[in-house]
Simulated assay, not measured.
Amino acid sequence: MRPVVVVGDVATDVVVALTGDPAPGSDRPASIRTRGGGAGANVAVHLARLGIPVQLAGCVGDDAAASVLRAELAAAGVQPALRTVAGAATGVVVSLVEPGGQRSMLADRGANLELEPGDVPPLSQGGHLHLSGYTLLDPGPRAAGLGALAAAVTAGCTVSVDPASTEPLRRYGVDRWLADTAAATVLLPNADEACLLTGCTDAVDAARALAVHHPVVAVSLGAEGAVWAAGTALVHRPAQATEVVDTTGAGDAFAAGLLAAWLTAGREPDPVTALDAGLALAAEVVRRPGAR
């Protein structure tokens, strides 16, 4: 089994499931739960639960939340490689979930912005690096993300990258991001991110365009499923029927499910198997509140 190092954010998710109609200036009923989150941590936890040996490189604050998150990660089977940043707060993400499952996210990345190149553990020859795109989108942790990519190439590792989010990606600069991630073996954008990265208006066309530069591109399409592009091959799989309670973390679950299938398949991964594994895990996650 190839070992995986995940580099990305660790956070506490505050999931606010809203009910009733919007009531500006007044009260609105909600169900509020606190759970472990962070894009990097979500992928790491899912991979570990699927039997993949995984380390998570990140930063936490010197607060009670960090202790809770460390314990949760270890209980899930993740080997935490987390540096405590003195005087910093552990990241917090507030997810506002509307009836029907769509959500808006308010992020205070806290200690995650202090990630340094030395925080990333050595990569095993022939292993795998998964890099959360958020790591590249801020000046603080960017050097750590670029250093991890360079180390992966040197070690002969495969690399997967999730672009993370359209607005910070747009601010960062598409050309800059594409240059940073040119070594990625597997690119894992959603439809909006794929279109932003290519200028295409259709996500399938965007997948084809990105596959010119990366060996595998897997684009998640929400309710439309997902598409796999590799070379001239294109495979589409439908989403699995499920009740949608909260879409928080669906992309992270899709990435982890697909990667677990891809990493265990050997040299010739089956696109149908990989896509279906990602879509199955995403369907499981959206049935309940929280990212994992």
Rank of each mutant, 00 (worst) to 15 (best):
L18P: 07
I32E: 10
L69K: 13
S31M: 11
V4S: 02
P3W: 05
I52C: 06
R83W: 10
V68K: 09
A66Y: 07
V14R: 15
A17M: 13
R35Q: 08
G8F: 01
V16K: 09
A17F: 04
A74S: 08
N42H: 04
D9V: 10
A76S: 15
A39C: 09
T12F: 03
N42E: 07
V54P: 00
D21Q: 14
L82W: 11
D27L: 10
L73E: 12
V15L: 12
D63P: 14
A17R: 07
A48S: 02
H46S: 08
A71I: 04
V6S: 00
G25C: 06
G20H: 13
V5S: 01
I52T: 02
I52K: 00
S31K: 12
L82V: 13
V15T: 00
V43F: 00
G40T: 01
T34Q: 14
T12N: 06
R70S: 12
C59T: 13
T34L: 15
L18F: 10
V45P: 12
E72W: 13
R35G: 06
L73C: 14
A74C: 10
A41V: 03
L82F: 07
A23N: 15
V45D: 05
V14S: 07
A81H: 08
V78H: 02
L18H: 07
S31L: 09
G58F: 00
A48R: 00
P24M: 13
A75R: 14
C59W: 00
G8D: 07
G51I: 08
A64V: 08
P22T: 11
P3R: 13
A48T: 05
A30C: 09
V15N: 02
L69D: 05
G8H: 07
L73G: 15
A57G: 08
V54K: 01
Q55L: 05
D27E: 15
G38R: 01
I32L: 13
P3I: 08
G77P: 10
H46G: 04
N42A: 03
D13E: 12
V68R: 11
T19G: 11
D62Y: 14
A23S: 14
T19E: 12
V43E: 00
A74I: 05
G38D: 03
A75G: 12
V16T: 10
V15W: 06
D63G: 10
R2I: 01
S26I: 06
V10R: 04
P53W: 06
S26M: 10
L73S: 12
R28Q: 14
A44E: 02
S67P: 14
P29D: 08
C59E: 02
I52P: 05
R2S: 06
S31C: 12
S67G: 15
S31F: 03
L56E: 04
R83Q: 11
L73T: 02
G37C: 03
D63S: 10
A41G: 07
V7M: 06
Q55A: 05
I52W: 01
Q55I: 12
R2D: 02
R49Y: 04
A76H: 08
D62E: 09
Q55N: 06
L69V: 15
A44H: 00
R70E: 05
G38T: 01
D9Q: 10
G36R: 03
R2H: 14
L50Y: 03
V5L: 03
P24Q: 14
G61W: 02
E72C: 11
G58D: 00
D27T: 15
G36H: 03
A71D: 14
A44C: 10
R35S: 11
I32Y: 11
L82A: 03
V5D: 03
